[in-house]
């Protein structure tokens, strides 16, 4: 009776936890609704570039999209708070925190004015910086032209504090730009870095401590209202249940990606404990400065931080 078109910029793969979520969600909705809702997955931006799909959900053209959180702030500035680094220790901790009832109640308010809501918020790996020269410690970021994952201050100010120079660039241009040295490094999802063979041109990969790619599964509220309360409950339940499939792949997914990166000729660099401490000492004040400038963001951040502490 109903079609639910789900767009994602990432390709579907057998290792990535987010793909597991999407496939489990599809199966869950179709089974739970006895086939009354046909879920169609459109991975790899087949339905258009990310901004267009976000707009498409707001306008009711498509029913769901799963972009990185930065693209949702065009509809609702409050989404920006999820870009704050240092909230989560690891992806399991992030999953627990983001599933906390207080956090879910807050996220449920996001986007109400635009007629949208995040059906699910998940992480998609730790922030991964690929670079031409190795980045072994925070000081190595000094003077680096870095393609960041967005243009918001919460993403860029901590990098500026470390001495990096943020550059805004579409994903498609990042790889040739790294090859020619137009940029020195790029923050890129690890699965994207592996999938597009970034190791060919930028063989050094570094995980940034406490930074995770956050994905928001945005749905249109009118769509949920249109399918009626029973089917809405089915969709919500399927989104929740699909987290099991997602969680089942969290460890293996990250390990497989790291192994694939190394196999492709890449190296993985990790900060020492001192490096992590130095990184946090520089970035934390930058994060707090951005958050402190906005009372709403401060309130949202405090709630997230409390939930993160309680779920540790």
């Amino acid at each position: 009776d109903f079609v639910m078109r789900v767009s994602s910029p990432a390709p579907l793969s057998a290792i990535d936890p987010l793909s597991a979520w999407m496939e489990a969600f599809e199966a869950g909705v179709e089974a739970g609704s006895n086939g009354r809702i046909d879920v169609q997955l459109y991975p790899a931006s087949q339905l258009g570039p990310i901004p267009a799909t976000v707009e498409g959900v707001a306008m009711g053209t498509i029913e769901m999209t799963l972009p990185i959180i930065g693209f949702l702030s065009r509809l609702e500035p409050r989404f920006q708070v999820l870009d704050a680094g240092g909230l989560f220790d690891d992806e399991r901790h992030a999953l627990r925190t983001l599933s906390d009832p207080r956090v879910r109640a807050m996220l449920g308010e996001f986007g109400a004015d635009a007629g949208v809501e995040p059906l699910v918020v998940l992480t998609s790996g730790q922030s991964f910086v690929v670079s031409r020269a190795p980045i072994d410690e925070p000081a190595d970021l000094n003077g680096v032209k870095l393609r960041t994952g967005g243009a918001t201050p919460l993403v860029n100010d901590p990098m500026i504090a470390l001495g990096a120079s943020p550059v805004s660039m579409p994903l498609g241009e990042a790889l040739p730009a790294l090859q020619t040295g137009t940029i020195d490094a790029a923050t890129i999802n690890a699965s994207v870095a592996v999938g597009f063979n970034f190791a060919d041109v930028a063989p050094n990969g570094t995980f940034l401590p406490g930074n995770f790619t956050v994905i928001g599964g945005l749905v249109n509220r009118d769509f949920l209202a249109m399918i009626g309360p029973d089917l809405e409950a089915v969709v919500r339940q399927a989104a929740e249940d699909a987290k099991t499939a997602y969680e089942a792949r969290l460890d293996s997914g990250a390990q497989t990606l790291a192994a694939a990166w190394t196999n492709a000729g890449g190296a993985i660099h990790t900060f020492s404990d001192d490096g992590v401490a130095a990184y946090t000492a520089v970035t934390e004040p930058a994060v707090q400065a951005v958050i402190g400038a906005n009372p709403q963001m401060q309130a949202d951040y405090d709630l997230l931080r409390q939930a993160a502490t309680d779920n540790r």
Partner: peptide, 12 residues
């Protein structure tokens, strides 16, 4: 008109 009502802003 809907874009206007939602108050959609550009990303950067």
């Amino acid at each position: 008109t809907r874009v206007h009502r939602i108050g959609m802003t550009s990303d950067s």
